[in-house]
Amino acid sequence: MTGGCADAPRRDTTGRQVQRTLDARAAAVLRHDEAGYLAALDPSARQLKAAGRAEFANLTEMPLSSWEYLLTGVRRAGDRAVADAELRYRLDGYDPSPVTAARRLELAERNGRWYITADRPGRGGGQQLWQQGDVEVVRGTHSLVLGVGQEPARLRRIAADADRAVPAVTAAWGGAWAGRVVVVVPASLDAMGRLLGAPAEEYRGVAAVTTGSAAAPGRGGGPASADRVTVNPEAYGLLGELGRRVVLTHETAHVATRAHTSAATPLWLSEGFADWAAYRGSGQDPRRTAPELRRSVVRGDLPTALPADADFRFGGDSRALGRAYEGGWLACELIADRWGEERLRAFYRTVGAAGAREAAVESAFDKVLGTSPERFTADWREYVGERLAR
């Protein structure tokens, strides 16, 4: 009897080799090595090389402290491959954790090495700011403003607005946050949509939005995400001084509260607190700041329940959206007026730390405020009528 052994199956090392290409590209970004950055691109792809050269020049303006790729999947077909990866980066002095952007990379193998032939947003992702043009950077006292296609003077004004918003939010939230904000200003509404990976029409009339990752339920108070406040240059430009202050204070409040905001937090609370922080101490007449809800009150049509999450959707009935925001604001104002500002902060943190939406709010009403959802809703309806019918 003779024996023998079959050849062991060859192990596919494509993922490891692609990761090596991406690691080299990341290292080149951090050491400002244009040649190294371009070396990851297919030598025959002239158009891609030209775009890569422009992107690299824009990247050098950004104060990066880290840049890396995490490969999450590779599908190979001969000498071609498609890879899914997470781009993770931090802005020095501003990001407590990395920004994560989904990327889909197409690659080709040449002489035993993998080269990038296309780099696109992954599922749910958007274009990156440095892919939209020359990045202008303005540093404020408490802010970092990154703009494309904007006059430096305008970016400095936005930085000044953000610098006023940060201490206002610190006073409202109680100081337990990083105390700085990153503001992104694209060239247009369409460019804003590309950054956010959504139709631009969804943001028409919206002056700014905040993006970041909420904490997992039950983990309120965990590490804060690297939030970005993205300004719609068209809508923001139409605002007066008060409007700009309210918008940036509202969005900065989302940054401050992010570590205590989870899937257990209803939108009436997160959006209401942000508006409460923005209007706190302003002396504004609620009949002017809550016009849509006031119209309902004047008609004798008081809301029967606190706003649901679905009421905060963009792209639908703008008046209904206004009533939702105004109702959330007055709910938070009621808590601050009747129970005190510290109880409002404790209520927010308690809800965000809960494990499930269904029990979170009811439990917080009981433990923090000594009331029930039903009793609070009745009190809120009465408060709305009193504040808006005068």
Rank of each mutant, 00 (worst) to 15 (best):
A224D: 14
P373I: 12
T14F: 14
L334S: 10
Q131M: 15
L71R: 08
Q150S: 13
R180D: 15
F314R: 10
W67C: 02
T211Y: 00
G340L: 07
E202A: 12
H250K: 01
V182S: 02
Y236A: 05
R154S: 14
R11W: 03
D23Y: 01
L334T: 03
R80I: 02
L71M: 09
E358N: 05
P217D: 09
L306I: 14
E292Q: 07
F347D: 08
R154N: 13
V169R: 09
R180N: 15
A259G: 01
D227S: 13
A6P: 05
R120C: 02
L267M: 06
D337G: 01
T289W: 10
Q17A: 15
L71P: 03
A256I: 02
F56A: 02
E374I: 05
R313E: 15
R46A: 15
V209H: 10
V206Q: 12
Y348C: 06
A359S: 14
D317T: 05
A101E: 15
V137A: 03
S213Y: 04
Q127C: 10
L334K: 05
R194E: 15
S296N: 09
Y279E: 09
Q131N: 13
E333W: 04
L269Y: 06
R287P: 08
L64G: 04
H254Y: 12
R294V: 09
W114R: 08
D309E: 09
D79K: 10
W177V: 11
A101M: 09
D33M: 05
G281H: 13
G355M: 01
E358Y: 04
L321I: 04
V138M: 11
A6H: 10
V138S: 10
G205K: 04
G147S: 08
N58S: 15
Q128P: 00
W130S: 15
T377R: 08
F314W: 04
F376Q: 01
L64K: 04
A165T: 06
R357K: 10
L30K: 13
R20M: 03
S318D: 14
A378E: 14
V148G: 11
Y203K: 02
V145W: 06
L155D: 11
A28M: 01
G147D: 07
R25A: 13
A54D: 13
P307S: 02
P303M: 05
L238A: 13
W339P: 02
P223W: 05
S372F: 05
R88E: 07
Q17D: 14
M192P: 04
A35S: 13
G179N: 02
R204H: 06
V184M: 12
P266W: 08
D309Y: 03
G355N: 10
A364K: 10
G4A: 12
Q150K: 00
E374S: 11
P43H: 11
R219D: 08
D92M: 01
G370S: 10
E201Y: 00
T100E: 15
A264C: 05
D311Y: 07
P266S: 05
A102G: 05
L330E: 12
C332E: 00
P167K: 04
D119M: 06
S65K: 09
D301N: 10
L321N: 03
R104H: 09
Y279I: 06
W276V: 03
T60K: 13
L30A: 01
R31P: 04
A214K: 06
R357A: 14
A389D: 09
R75W: 06
